[in-house]
Design a protein around this nucleic acid. Structure first.
Lengths: 212, 212, 212, 212
DNA sequence: CATGAATGAGCATTCATTCAT
DNA sequence: GATGAATGAATGCTCATTCAT
């Protein structure tokens, strides 16, 4: 669109392209096993050029995570207040979105990497926790709490119940995406989601006749 | 207990000491960021001595995992058949054992490492899946299925329900052990377990009056 | 002469410089006792730079030999057919060239190294044998055979006679170049050559009166 | 034969057994590639025991060579004076002995090793030259000179003619033993020896009609 | 600005030598 | 004396980072 020389074509997109490339490689080979040169090649630029945008390999990783974290953090915060709908509907919507998104290995890659490299990048892990986990958990907690307040859910400990909301999802992803568990069977994400939601809501729902 | 009367300067259990040291370091810094020399130092021997027991750094990692996997695999298989008790009791017992064991960072370290390095050691990940996950999941599935057969649980998909049994536990461990989430709060493992079990069983229990 | 207009900090011939440096060092200290860092230093570059041109120390050695072998192999094959001159003249020419060339330690170094490292690099030894020895020996055999056919030489076994052509040369080189034999005396290569040629031709020449 | 405990059985032979073992290994893998532990194992003793007899790996090599050199040096010196026979007969005898001995890889190994490691052990190379080469060459030179003096050989330069005596032998050994040249053909050592001797003697013999 | 040649600290691994048993 | 566990210097190789072109 511009009349600049060819090589400047998308100079402003470069950093993002580098991060995309790095993400792909980090996700498949891990941070340590990925060479800066590999990233450069994957991004279609030279090794030296990488250092125009990022001051170190570590910084690439950090930028990568922060870039992925930002929108999630924003969204997560809004969700809880935004809707006035039935908490069950909201939970199902959230879980659906989550499972769809996270079934994309490219998206799952970031939390996976944070998990992998938490030891080497404690600060990053902390950032992730603060920006993503704290907010995400708080959002879900709020929804559950509203359900309790509205009498739709039983008076459980909302904060702890969050683990029952996200846990099965996490387990499903670990098993299917990382350990290739059940690779041959035909448990679609939808099947899982139905099952999870059914058990979750049934678990949260107050019933006239509770047994000790 | 000794197999050979041959002497050892100080050990027969050197290999185990090396694995213990390696586990500590791998767990805190990751495989790649841990130097063989660090392991040696942590184990109180010299770099060269490591290679008397293990032929490579990779082999240390693999031995580490296999050593941890073996007993778990055995136990997991037995659990399902062993008991004829109320499936709810069994599940609670299992979850209690699991959370107690896995709250020990030294024990959590192995699955965590497998998760971390699955990309670099696909074979090991597969071994772990086969030996630990397949069996563990099968054991739980069997218990749930028995509960269903005995009318104690609703007729859910037992295979998928397994994720609801282990997922919250996984989520709890990730949050608390790895992301130091809730570090300041006082959610004891017991609190979590009560909450999880309550929701889980309530979710699995058939109620006279189900609402759409 | 340049193949690509791409720039090089200082070279295009770095690989050759590395091989030259390696040759000098391998020749004087042997393959095993030569450190890659030594080669780098001798070549005036850094250790790491070596690996831009050669993937391993072994590869340096192999390249070294192959570089030296190629032109020899070519020449050797041509010699036998090229000339129609008196076989005695050809032999003398060949021996003269050989002794002049091989008296240069830099040139002698390669066959010497192949000899030294034949055990460690059997494949390389075989390559050398095939490319250099087979052809060289065949060329000389052909010349001797022609001399026999033309009645200039006695009807000896040409193949075995080759050893009498090259052997004294080999012995001379081993003694003088490697064992510093006769270092103080004044046997010039020319003196040796005259002596060798005289004995060789006299040995090959038919005489009217042979004595038992 | 003695009533000492088993392990002392042949304590005095140990050093020689170590040298035998070392020779076998050095010959097949080279000095650098042979581990002291390998030598110990091959000799049937422990690594530590090696150091009771030799203070270092280098010393093993040096002892090895010196042990082999001693008898050769002695014999070589005697040969020239000992016999009053026809120099041609003496030469043939010597060459026969030489080729028979040196066709045994175990015996060829020492000169081969000296050649290989001359760079790393210059002193040893010098010793070898002094003890073996100087004497051997002098012995042959003397025989040739006597032949000249007695009118059996032409008045050649005896010192240089030595190369024509031993050279073809050296060439034959290098080609056959080290480069596996002619492995498939059937040039027996005897065939070679006949050929060499025929050419050598014919070359040394004065003929009534010499041609320019 | 872009490039990729060059650097050199860093690390896994080997092995001659020592020495506690 | 004999053993082999332990040591640690040595070395090949890698790769993040720099910088001449």
């Amino acid at each position: 669109m511009q009349q600049e020389p060819k090589w400047r074509r998308r100079a402003e997109d470069r950093p993002d392209e580098v991060l995309d490339a790095a993400l792909r490689l980090f996700a498949s080979k891990g941070f340590a096993a990925t060479k800066v040169e590999d990233i450069a090649q994957e991004a279609g630029i030279s090794k030296g050029a990488i250092y125009r945008y990022f001051s170190s390999k570590d910084e690439i990783f950090e930028s990568l995570v922060r870039r992925a974290v930002a929108p999630i953090a924003e969204r997560a915060s809004k969700i809880a207040e935004t809707s006035r709908e039935d908490p069950r509907i909201i939970l199902k919507t959230l879980l659906t979105i989550a499972i769809v998104k996270l079934s994309d290995p490219e998206i799952l890659a970031v939390p996976r990497l944070v998990l992998q490299e938490a030891g080497r990048f404690p600060e990053l892990a902390e950032t992730y926790r603060r920006e993503v986990l704290d907010r995400g958990v708080a959002a879900i907690e709020k929804i559950v709490q509203r359900g309790i307040d509205e009498g739709i859910f039983r008076p459980v400990n909302a904060r702890l119940a969050v683990r029952n909301v996200i846990g099965p999802l996490v387990a499903h992803l670990l098993l299917s995406q990382i350990f290739k568990f059940d690779a041959e069977r035909i448990d679609s994400p939808q099947d899982f989601l139905e099952s999870h939601f059914d058990l979750l809501i049934n678990g949260l729902t107050p019933h006239t006749m509770e047994e000790g």
